[in-house]
């Protein structure tokens, strides 16, 4: 499993570079051009991240989140799921930068290769922020009645999160 995972990125890079070579594009110039486009992304990202770290840290560190969702604790311990990933699960559909902030905190505390770190990584990597996508995409074309889209989106999130937990627990 680890071997296959480790091979995916080198193979992808190789394919991209070879294809670019055959098509005779300026490989290096194109690379620099693309890398440069990360600057505007970072500058737009920073205020969002800062705001989300502030909000999420106050919310999670104060203990109000655990208190709020403490009724879920027996379910978590029954399935041997670490309770620490709860903030991740709750926040995932709402905001991408907030879960990234939570992920950062979990890595700092437990390390990326721990069970908690791995589950959190897979949750972050396999789902997307439903609320954000809905607001942005429907907002851009003026759709007011979103019908059943929110339910289906959240359902997909839950399936993603549950399978992330099951798959990771099976592997470790």
């Amino acid at each position: 499993m680890t071997l296959i995972s480790n091979m995916i990125i080198p193979i992808l890079v190789l394919i991209i570079i070879i294809h670019g070579f055959i098509k005779r594009i300026d490989l290096y110039d194109e690379f620099v051009k693309g890398a440069k486009s990360s600057f505007p992304m970072i500058t737009t990202m920073f205020p969002c991240l800062l705001g989300m770290i502030l909000g999420v840290n106050i919310f999670t560190k104060s203990g109000v989140l655990d208190w709020f969702f403490s009724f879920l604790k027996p379910i978590f311990s029954y399935w041997k799921i670490p309770f620490e990933i709860l903030p991740m699960i709750v926040m995932r559909p709402i905001s991408g930068s907030s879960t990234l902030a939570i992920l950062n905190g979990l890595f700092k505390k437990y390390g990326p290769d721990s069970l908690i770190g791995t589950i959190a990584s897979v949750i972050q990597g396999s789902t997307d922020t439903t609320f954000y996508v809905l607001t942005l995409y429907f907002g851009s074309i003026g759709i007011k009645k979103i019908r059943y889209s929110l339910y289906v989106g959240l359902f997909a999130d839950i399936v993603g999160i549950v399978s992330a937990i099951i798959i990771t627990s099976m592997l470790l």
Partner: peptide, 13 residues
């Protein structure tokens, strides 16, 4: 193993 999560991510997604 920073990339060990790639395959689980693909399956879950």
């Amino acid at each position: 193993t920073p990339t060990a999560i790639v395959l689980p991510c693909i399956i879950a997604t």
